[in-house]
């Protein structure tokens, strides 16, 4: 009797908790959609921030995130390949793996401060390069750990089979092992891109923000997330509406990238 009662209590509690957790998510999405869509106009996408649009912000945010990915993905992948395929699980490898995991959970504001000291303070001005460096630093450990974990899922028999057919180690890794882990690694890259495209803290005092359209990475660089942070604190209604619209667009982008990543894993495995 007692056991049945306990079972029911726990069932009710966990169902309740699940409902509470999910309802917050839907609350956020609903508010965002409601406020965001009503503030969204065609001009939001065609005008720059100075004229009440987010065109330059989107371009700026994507520029920084894409360049950061172009640097972080190869570095992270090679590091992950070294960790899993070449390190023979040595002491050094476990130190690097742990450090990378620590880096992954490092508060992003700390990375921002670090990059500020290195790439902003000496030059005397906020600049786009500093923002890219900060995003790259955030992204590398995520790519390392994804690559490492996805390669670990490839059975060791596949490596042995390749070697037994007369392959050299690097050929087997490039032509077979990475191919076998391709879907997982691609998903990891997508998810980590979704992660950094929505980051504010690392950009706050590295690239800062720019009201105008620019591709000049040596100066302040337009950022969607930093703009949302700024706009939301302004007193006028137009700014806050734009903040809602920008938040909605950002959420939509992140959601789409995330869903694409998940869709790929589900279908290809």
């Amino acid at each position: 009797m007692n056991r049945l009662l306990l079972n029911k209590i726990i069932l009710v509690l966990s169902t309740l908790s699940a409902i509470i957790g999910i309802s917050f998510l839907f609350w956020i999405l609903a508010t965002l959609t409601y406020k965001g869509v009503s503030s969204l106009h065609l001009s939001t996408f065609t005008e720059d921030l100075v004229n009440g649009g987010i065109r330059n912000l989107l371009v700026g945010q994507f520029t920084m995130a894409l360049i950061a990915s172009a640097i972080a993905v190869p570095i992270g992948m090679f590091a992950g390949i070294w960790l899993r395929e070449y390190s023979n699980q040595s002491k050094l490898a476990s130190v690097i793996r742990n450090l990378s995991d620590v880096m992954m959970s490092a508060p992003s504001i700390v990375i921002g401060v670090f990059v500020y000291a290195l790439f902003v303070a000496p030059f005397g001005s906020y600049n786009g390069f500093a923002g890219i460096v900060a995003l790259t630093i955030m992204m590398i450990p995520i790519i390392i750990s994804t690559t490492d974990n996805m390669l670990a899922l490839v059975p060791k028999e596949l490596r042995e089979a390749g070697i037994a057919l007369g392959g050299s180690k690097h050929k087997i890794i490039v032509q077979i092992i990475i191919k076998a882990a391709k879907v997982g690694i691609t998903t990891g890259v997508l998810l980590s891109f979704a992660r950094i495209i929505g980051e504010t803290a690392p950009l706050l005092f590295t690239s800062a923000n720019n009201q105008f359209f620019t591709m000049d990475l040596t100066g302040q660089f337009p950022s969607l997330t930093v703009s949302i942070y700024n706009l939301a604190t302004y007193p006028d209604e137009a700014s806050r509406e734009l903040a809602w619209a920008a938040s909605f667009v950002l959420t939509a982008i992140v959601l789409i990238i995330n869903l694409t990543g998940r869709y790929m894993t589900r279908n290809k495995k």
Binding site: E157, L158, E160, A161, A164, I176
Partner: peptide, 12 residues
């Protein structure tokens, strides 16, 4: 040559 316990087709 060598054949393993579990079949090891390559992903191609």
């Amino acid at each position: 040559g060598m054949i393993f316990q579990k079949p090891t087709p390559f992903p191609m």
